[in-house]
């Protein structure tokens, strides 16, 4: 599939996954990839964490939009801010301050579980209606929170029978259940527990929210060490002894007439073995994911170099584009 086509399938993409799988990285990657096709992209960050700005080499992200990269803008939209914003937009500007100060707002929000989530998504909906960007990417709350985040609107329709909050929830349900407006992109890493949890999350989302799921992004995949004309791999075969690999390293060194100490040959062999093992486990887990969850996968490479910055995001965006191309 063409990247441009992929990015315009729905105007809102919600990126979700458990903590530590690189959800924010994927959000940034998708944004950069989409911007390359000429789209204007808006990233909405709902937890008030700083990781996103750092990925773009920016100091911080605020409630006001700011440019993160060419074609990519970003802003935060925390539940508390969404609530105040919404009250002000509904002619309750004067009480909103008092509601906050007295703590009454917390009580109301407790009485209506999911209310803040709905207001966040409700705000996303209005951003969508205002056409504030060609693509809006929401960096969703982590793990179990993501399911709550996406199911709260339906839950609220049961709990609240009247009023503007109910109206808001109705609008959110409409947004979420329209595949042309909104999709969820799930992120995981190719390891056992994250894969198992992702499958559970995916089914929970499908069963309980009616949101359509896009492809699964499998983040942090070790790339093959494939080299040589005949596709020989530098990482040795599984099960081979480190000593055997070390000996073959020495043969290569002899052939090239360079010196490799025995100790270094052993380090090279062990590092290659480690990579092979992990790559095999990852392949196994990604395959297992494919069997349990019939969704296409986009695999992003594990980056060894430095911390996440613009350069790394660009590299990942290349991989993302290639992954979409293979869909």
């Amino acid at each position: 599939m063409e990247l441009a086509q992929f990015c315009s399938t729905s105007r809102v993409i919600i990126v979700a996954g458990k903590g530590g799988v690189g959800k924010t990285t994927v959000t940034a990657t998708l944004a950069v990839a989409a911007a390359r096709t000429g789209m204007s992209v808006l990233i909405v960050e709902v937890e008030g964490k700083s990781g996103l700005a750092a990925a773009f080499d920016r100091p911080s992200l605020g409630y006001e939009e700011s440019e993160l990269a060419p074609g990519v803008r970003g802003r935060t939209l925390t539940p508390d801010a969404a609530l105040v914003d919404w009250l002000q937009g509904n002619g309750l500007k004067r009480v909103s301050k008092r509601l906050v100060q007295t703590g009454a707002l917390d009580i109301v929000a407790t009485a209506v579980p999911g209310m803040k989530d709905i207001l966040v998504l409700g705000k996303v909906k209005s951003l969508d209606l205002q056409r504030s960007a060609d693509l809006i990417i929401v960096d969703a709350p982590a793990a179990g929170h993501a399911i709550t985040f996406l199911t709260s609107a339906r839950g609220l329709l049961d709990a609240v029978s009247v009023g503007p909050v109910r109206k808001q929830a109705t609008d959110v349900v409409e947004l979420l259940s329209d595949p042309e407006r909104c999709r969820v992109l799930l992120v995981t890493i190719p390891e056992e527990t994250p894969v198992s949890e992702l499958v559970d999350t995916a089914f929970a989302i499908e069963d309980r929210t009616g949101v359509s799921l896009g492809p699964v992004v499998v983040n942090g995949c070790y790339e093959d060490l494939a080299v040589g004309a005949n596709g020989d791999r530098a990482s040795h075969q599984l099960g081979a002894d480190d000593a055997v690999t070390a000996a073959s390293i020495q043969r290569d060194a002899d052939l090239l007439d360079v010196f490799v100490s025995d100790r270094e040959a052993r380090d090279l062999a062990r590092a290659a073995a480690f990579r092979s093992e992990r790559a095999a486990i990852q392949t196994h887990q990604a395959d297992r994911l494919g069997q349990m969850l019939p969704l296409p996968q986009i695999r992003l490479p594990f980056l060894f170099t430095a911390d996440l910055g613009m350069r790394e995001i660009e590299r990942l965006a290349d991989a993302f584009t290639a992954g979409v191309g293979a869909l």
């Binding site: 080299v227 040589g228 530098a234 390293i249 043969r251 060194a253 090279l268």
Partner: peptide, 20 residues
């Protein structure tokens, strides 16, 4: 020796990756 060269270089890169 091209194959040996590429293979050995890739092994060094791999080790550099992990140590980095």
């Amino acid at each position: 020796a091209v194959e040996a060269r590429e293979r050995l270089a890739a092994r060094y890169e791999n080790l550099a990756d992990f140590n980095e």
